[in-house]
Design a protein around this nucleic acid. Sequence first.
DNA 1: ACCTGAACACCGTTCAAGT
DNA 2: ACCTGAACACCGTTCAAGT
Lengths: 219, 219
Amino acid sequence: MTAIESQRGRLSRQSIARSAADIIGSDGLGAFSLRSLAKTLGVDPAAIYRHYENLDDLLRDVADLALAPVTEKFVTSADPLDDVRRLLLRLRHVLLSSGVARLNVSGPSRHSNELQITEVMLTSFAKLGLSSKDAVMAYHVLIEFTVGSASLDAPLASSPADRRDTYKRWRTDYKTVDAETYPAIAAHASRLYPSSERVFATGLDALLNQLLVRSHSDD
Amino acid sequence: MTAIESQRGRLSRQSIARSAADIIGSDGLGAFSLRSLAKTLGVDPAAIYRHYENLDDLLRDVADLALAPVTEKFVTSADPLDDVRRLLLRLRHVLLSSGVARLNVSGPSRHSNELQITEVMLTSFAKLGLSSKDAVMAYHVLIEFTVGSASLDAPLASSPADRRDTYKRWRTDYKTVDAETYPAIAAHASRLYPSSERVFATGLDALLNQLLVRSHSDD
DNA sequence: ACCTGAACACCGTTCAAGT
DNA sequence: ACCTGAACACCGTTCAAGT
């Protein structure tokens, strides 16, 4: 109910990043821009440049902010492999539900939530007896798979029902391909495009399984 | 040497898509826009809309055009698993070198080059004795890993030397994290960020290995 | 010190007009 | 039928000006 009395000191990196994360979380990445953010904040677009160098700089903060729920209240168990599994399933879910999956932040942000995820994974691998070399490699492979596949699945993240419909449409599209030129596709058409959750879970388990095998030979 | 004599009939879906792929291939995705493409073609931006419904429609063609080298002169061997391995290494390389890795084309284009890749993979899995269900799942997992990780590695694709420098910088950055809060990261700092090629190769081999294991139990 | 306002150099897309 | 030109509703970013 209080009217805006002063335009000074209202902004901070925190309040800007949080507002940006809110816009992306509720209306999607497509609804976000520096200008739409400024409008939401009731501020001139240029004002943001007093707090952030540029859009990339801001998005790095937004991405890390969105990752907070991944390690929040995460309790490690006696099974380090299951810990990693649960953590990465959480990571995928958070990336998709927060709307930041498609955010083009290149390279590690090295902010707290990202570092926390890295720390949990590397600790788990150490518990599993992996060498430093294997642990680091496992970390990168699993992160690339999780973040990469979340990024590919993100555009379909609108609603579960919409997603199923999209997949269904793609499957029927595959049925129309020429069976002479593409016999294998024609034969598998009805099975193509299972739910992306099942694809991810299958790939994740395959990778985790193989990490166990690797830990035997290298110890 | 012939001057432009007529503005009519100079455009086609083929010539537009090819020109777009050329721009992206030589100057990168950042240099491409509908307007920059129109300028290269010596045409008004609006002219493109006579041939393509919108940008997404055009990019679908561009993406498939870029995939041509993947199956070109690809010869299958007596080892179907190695065929898949070679195909996906090619796919990654083409995605990165053509500049289209970051192209946000959601869903399958169902154009010829994409279908060709799908056909080779599904055929190889059949040769390996995988069930239809397992073959389709393997296909999706491997494509998500390959396309997803290429997408994440793309921004670093400038030059191999630049890439190494970037990784080196990141590794030294990790050495500055607080060793009390992040002991595992501190312990592994010097090893973090191995070459993305090695990460991909490791993940790919892990997944392919696991596919063999799976094919035993489900036959 | 922090925000505003205007400007710059861009976008994708639409639509009436030309040929 | 195909392309042009102008317009619309946007972008991120810079910089002088206000308070």
